[in-house]
Computed example of a mutant assay.
Amino acid sequence: MSDRKSWNGLREEALDHPEAQASYDAARIRFELGRAVRERREELGMTQTQLARAAGLQQPAVARFEAGGTMPTLPLLERLATALGMRLQVGFEPLERAG
């Protein structure tokens, strides 16, 4: 019999550590924000370069953001929201409702 664990088992074991859970949560937030910006940009038919110009950024910064590679500041999110014709909304929700 093998002592090998499944990927899900290893993941759950790793996430039992508070530092790992915090890193996982930060990565999830970066990914979700990047996906939301990419989807809205594509909805508007904008390129990354066009969004970058409108937000006062460089195209590689938009690419990194959309890929979840950077944790943005609130001022950056406000600039992106404005460039995408949106209003930034920040809030809290109970953990039992969070997905």
Rank of each mutant, 00 (worst) to 15 (best):
residue 42 E to T: 10
residue 44 L to H: 03
residue 32 E to K: 15
residue 49 T to M: 11
residue 14 A to S: 09
residue 41 R to V: 04
residue 11 R to T: 07
residue 16 D to M: 09
residue 34 G to H: 02
residue 11 R to Y: 09
residue 43 E to N: 09
residue 30 R to T: 01
residue 37 V to D: 03
residue 39 E to V: 12
residue 40 R to T: 07
residue 24 Y to K: 04
residue 40 R to Y: 01
residue 42 E to K: 15
residue 48 Q to C: 07
residue 7 W to K: 10
residue 13 E to C: 03
residue 27 A to R: 13
residue 6 S to V: 04
residue 43 E to S: 11
residue 44 L to M: 11
residue 47 T to W: 08
residue 20 A to Q: 13
residue 7 W to T: 11
residue 33 L to Y: 02
residue 35 R to T: 10
residue 17 H to C: 01
residue 26 A to T: 10
residue 27 A to F: 04
residue 48 Q to K: 12
residue 13 E to D: 14
residue 31 F to P: 00
residue 41 R to F: 05
residue 45 G to I: 04
residue 17 H to I: 04
residue 19 E to D: 15
residue 40 R to H: 06
residue 24 Y to E: 11
residue 34 G to E: 02
residue 29 I to N: 06
residue 44 L to C: 04
residue 10 L to F: 05
residue 39 E to T: 13
residue 38 R to I: 02
residue 36 A to H: 07
residue 36 A to Q: 15
residue 37 V to G: 03
residue 37 V to E: 06
residue 51 L to T: 06
residue 19 E to T: 07
residue 48 Q to V: 03
residue 43 E to W: 08
residue 32 E to S: 10
residue 16 D to N: 12
residue 36 A to D: 10
residue 31 F to W: 10
residue 19 E to A: 15
residue 11 R to D: 03
residue 41 R to A: 02
residue 43 E to F: 10
residue 17 H to G: 01
residue 37 V to C: 08
residue 34 G to T: 04
residue 46 M to E: 05
residue 23 S to L: 14
residue 49 T to V: 11
residue 48 Q to I: 03
residue 9 G to L: 02
residue 8 N to E: 12
residue 16 D to K: 15
residue 35 R to Y: 08
residue 51 L to I: 06
residue 8 N to H: 11
residue 13 E to T: 12
residue 14 A to Q: 12
residue 49 T to A: 14
residue 36 A to Y: 05
residue 29 I to Y: 10
residue 28 R to D: 08
residue 23 S to W: 05
residue 23 S to F: 07
residue 49 T to K: 14
residue 38 R to M: 09
residue 13 E to R: 15
residue 50 Q to N: 09
residue 43 E to A: 12
residue 18 P to N: 02
residue 8 N to K: 12
residue 50 Q to V: 04
residue 46 M to A: 05
residue 51 L to W: 05
residue 12 E to S: 11
residue 46 M to W: 13
residue 46 M to I: 00
residue 28 R to V: 09
residue 50 Q to A: 12
residue 20 A to W: 00
residue 13 E to H: 11
residue 8 N to L: 13
residue 6 S to E: 12
residue 32 E to W: 02
residue 34 G to S: 01
residue 26 A to Q: 14
residue 39 E to C: 02
residue 49 T to P: 00
residue 16 D to F: 02
residue 37 V to L: 13
residue 37 V to K: 05
residue 43 E to I: 02
residue 49 T to I: 09
residue 7 W to S: 07
residue 18 P to D: 01
